[in-house]
C-alpha cells in the first residue's frame, strides 16, 4: 500500500505551540513539504520574524535565524548575496512586514533579490495580544481599536501584495488563503512556485497567505474560517497579482 500522507521530513516531531485553529502550523507544514519536494533542505536558510512565528526554528529542521522586527528582507538580501547558491526565505507576519518592516520589504523587492518571502496576513498582531495591524479590516475590533478600525483615523487595510505587484523587478506576487482545503492546496502550489523561482534564479517571489487567528479575533476556529472567506477575502482578493514567468 502506498503511503499518501505522513509527517514532513523536515518538520521536527514536536507539537506546535500555536493556538487551536491558528494558520501558522499549516503554513509551516507546507513550507517543510516544499523543501522536501525540491530536496533543498541542506541548502536552505530560513529567517523567523518577531511575532507568533518567532519559534520557527523549533519546528524546522534546517538552518534558521531570528531577526529583529521587520528586518528579515534586509537579512535575507545579505545572506543570498553572500551565499548565492543557498535558498533563502523569510517568514513574516503583518506587523513585521506591513508595519515596522515596510521599507525593508519594498526595497528588497525593488532590488529584485532572488529570495522568497512568505507573508502571513491575519489582520492583527497575534503574539502581543491582538492589536490593530495595517491589515486590520474597517470596523474590525482589536485591543487598540476597541470601537472598530476607523478609515478616517487609521486608513484602509494595507494591500501589500498589490503594492509589491507594481514593482518592476518582482517576479511573483500572489495572495492565497488557508481558509479551506482548496485554499490550502493553492497555498501549497504557490509556496512551491515561489521556491522554484528562487531555485531557477528567477528573482523575488512574494506569497501573501491569509491565515486565521481565532484567539485574537474572538471567534471559534470554524467561525474564523468563515470570517476569512466572507470578510477578509473580500478586501484582500485572492489570486496571482503578478507572475513574470507566467507558469501554470
Amino acid at each position: 500500500m502506498n503511503k499518501v500522507f505522513e509527517w514532513p521530513q523536515h518538520l521536527k516531531k514536536k507539537p506546535f505551540r500555536f493556538c487551536p485553529g491558528c494558520g501558522h502550523s499549516i503554513v509551516h507544514r507546507l513550507i517543510a513539504e516544499a523543501i522536501e519536494k525540491f530536496s533543498i533542505r541542506d541548502n536552505v536558510i530560513g529567517i523567523a520574524p518577531v511575532g507568533c512565528a518567532v519559534f520557527a526554528y523549533d519546528y524546522f529542521d534546517f538552518d534558521m535565524i531570528e531577526a529583529a522586527h521587520g528586518r528579515p528582507p534586509a537579512i535575507a538580501t545579505a545572506m543570498k548575496r553572500v551565499l548565492p547558491d543557498r535558498i533563502v526565505f523569510s517568514y513574516q507576519g503583518d506587523g513585521d512586514l506591513a508595519a515596522i518592516g515596510t521599507a525593508e520589504i519594498i526595497h528588497a523587492a525593488n532590488r529584485g533579490e532572488n529570495i522568497t518571502v512568505f507573508f502571513i496576513n491575519n489582520a492583527t498582531y497575534g503574539m502581543t495580544g491582538g492589536q490593530m495591524a495595517p491589515t486590520t479590516l474597517i470596523n474590525q475590533k482589536t485591543t487598540t481599536s476597541p470601537q472598530g478600525r476607523e478609515l478616517s483615523k487609521t486608513g484602509a487595510p494595507m494591500k501589500v501584495c498589490e503594492m509589491i505587484a507594481t514593482i518592476e523587478s518582482v517576479s511573483l506576487a500572489v495572495r492565497v488563503s488557508t481558509d479551506s482545503i482548496k485554499g490550502v492546496t493553492s497555498t501549497k502550489n504557490m509556496i512551491e512556485r515561489a521556491f522554484k523561482y528562487q531555485i531557477e534564479g528567477k528573482g523575488f517571489a512574494f506569497v501573501e497567505i491569509l491565515s486565521p487567528c481565532p484567539t485574537d479575533w474572538g471567534l471559534a476556529p470554524d467561525e474564523a474560517l468563515k470570517w476569512m472567506r466572507n470578510e477578509m477575502a473580500s478586501v484582500f482578493k485572492l489570486g496571482v497579482l503578478k507572475d513574470k514567468w507566467k507558469t501554470g
Binding site: I45, I65, A67, A68, R71, A74, I75, A76, T77, A78, M79, R81, V82, L83, R86, A103, E104, I106, H107
Partner: peptide
C-alpha cells in the same frame, strides 16, 4: 558584496545576515 542600503537600519541588519553566513562584514 557592496549594497547601498535603504536605511541605516537595513544596512546593519544586512551586516547581521552576512555575518551570520560567516562573511567578514
Amino acid at each position: 558584496v557592496f549594497i547601498q542600503a535603504e536605511s541605516e537600519t537595513a544596512a546593519i541588519n544586512m551586516v547581521y545576515g552576512a555575518a551570520a553566513c560567516g562573511a567578514r562584514a
